[in-house]
Write a protein that binds this DNA or RNA. Structure first.
Lengths: 185, 185
DNA sequence: TGCTAAACGGAGACACTCTCCGTATTGTTC
DNA sequence: GAACAATACGGAGAGTGTCTCCGTTTAGCA
């Protein structure tokens, strides 16, 4: 890749991160290009679709996910608390940006989405948590990591749509935890 | 209202119902106008915003909600089953159209949305169910109808985004039921 | 029948996405 | 350091959607 191309690419990603933070993931891409001082063509050559750009912007987020996962998995206390911590962590991670919960939760079940690979790290993290909970017999049988993600994703999506911080819907996450732990009727 | 205006209004609503069913609630409104054989101006005069049109289209849905509510509330069996029935009914009602779950769940917490009044009937229905469950001591303390709606709305939103029918996420609704019923840890 | 308020409709302004292609820059080769 | 591909740039513009404005038409009353 030529040096100027590299420079522009980085500039676009940086600008997009800023614009997305301001206007959400549906912000105008022309605005991104304009603010970055490049032509629309340049933006679209580097990132043929909006998702590709989102994907690039997310790279830092992936690192953050990995870090948060390690932290939660390092927790030594009672498994029930581990679950609660993970639910809150998960919700926070996907809610870092406006529109994030819906986008990420949807991508989780659409393997062809360009951001799917990034979301996989989250799914894998949940899998690790679930494994540990299953091993300790705490998690209800038949519950998969995908189920957990869907449930938390749903709550986070709604909170996001209502412009509520995750802290305000934490009680709902505890309800989920109860449901995930309880034995089938 | 003049007779021709009335006629056009009804025609637009009918056409919109059809188009929304085909393409979801984000379908092009110009397409609605074109298919109804009226000018864009006519459509926008009757329905200044997309939400106004959605609102009009929803009138039949409101009737359906009321009917379903009566049916669930007439159920005489164990309260836990009442809850389960309501969760499934609720999810189905908001999932009748693609994009419905997100739209309705969001409107539920945005009182200024034009479709909010319509969504209120759903909230009130959930309130009636919750009241009965609380009276029987089945529902966990502190849980409000709004909480229940958020939880089910979240699950339904995700299912909708993944093009899954509600029947496929029913197990998740049972998880919710468990969480809503269980005593706090 | 004539008149006026009400309603119509579609051209077009504006916004956004995405492509095409003439122009400019890079970096390699001699 | 000059020449020359190969690579990248950028912005005009096509395509699509939203929504408004205003000249034209129509309903319904007197």
């Amino acid at each position: 890749m030529r040096a100027d191309a590299r420079r522009n690419r980085d500039l676009i990603v940086e600008t997009a991160r800023e614009v997305f933070r301001e206007h959400g993931y549906n912000a105008s891409l022309d605005l991104v290009a304009k603010r970055a001082g490049v032509g629309a063509g340049t933006l679209y050559r580097h990132f043929p679709s909006r998702e590709d750009l989102v994907n690039a912007v997310m790279q830092g987020w992936v690192d953050r996910v990995e870090e948060a996962t390690e932290k939660v998995l390092a927790f030594e206390g009672p498994p029930r608390e581990l679950l609660e911590r993970w639910l809150v962590t998960y919700a926070e991670l996907i809610s870092l940006h406006k529109g994030g919960p819906a986008k990420i939760t949807a991508a989780m079940v659409q393997p062809d989405s360009p951001i799917a690979p990034k979301c996989r790290v989250l799914l894998e993290a949940t899998e690790r948590v679930c494994e540990r909970l299953h091993a300790e017999g705490v998690l209800r049988e038949g519950i998969t990591a995908a189920d957990v993600n869907r449930l938390v994703g749903g709550v986070a999506t709604v909170a996001d749509g209502a412009d509520q911080p995750i802290s305000e819907v934490e009680p709902l996450l505890l309800v989920l935890a109860d449901g995930l732990v309880a034995a089938p009727a």
